[in-house]
Amino acid sequence: MIIRIDPASGTPLFEQLVRAIRSEVIRGRVTAGERLPSARDLADSLEVNQHTVLHAYQTLRDEGLIELRRGRGAVVAVEPDDLDAVRHLAASLVAAARERGLGAEAVHAVIREEFDR
């Protein structure tokens, strides 16, 4: 798993961390049950505040991608099969949207609305 952050970019560091780890999980480069580095180690490696990493880990936990356990740290929680099922549905959703001339932003809004319901 590789995590890259750029302090010069306008995106907050914790948000960059979330995006980086999320994309590694979604791509299956870390799989269910695998342990992520401890918040302290990751903060040390990237020269960021440990709270920044914890904030990112909590966000990812709220998304259901990882679990945070006392003593065991952050563990990837999402099963590859579940990920595949959602990806499959997303593919048909995107195909349907394209057919109807809807762009990515519009579809994102629809999805967000559905989640907030």
């Binding site: 798993m1 590789i2 995590i3 890259r4 952050i5 750029d6 302090p7 010069a8 695998e34 580095p37 990751l42 490696s45 990237l46 020269e47 960021v48």
Partner: peptide, 13 residues
């Protein structure tokens, strides 16, 4: 390809 100032960590087991 790392941008100047970009930080990165890679870990695997």
């Amino acid at each position: 390809d790392l941008a100047p100032g970009e930080r990165a960590v890679w870990t695997a087991s």
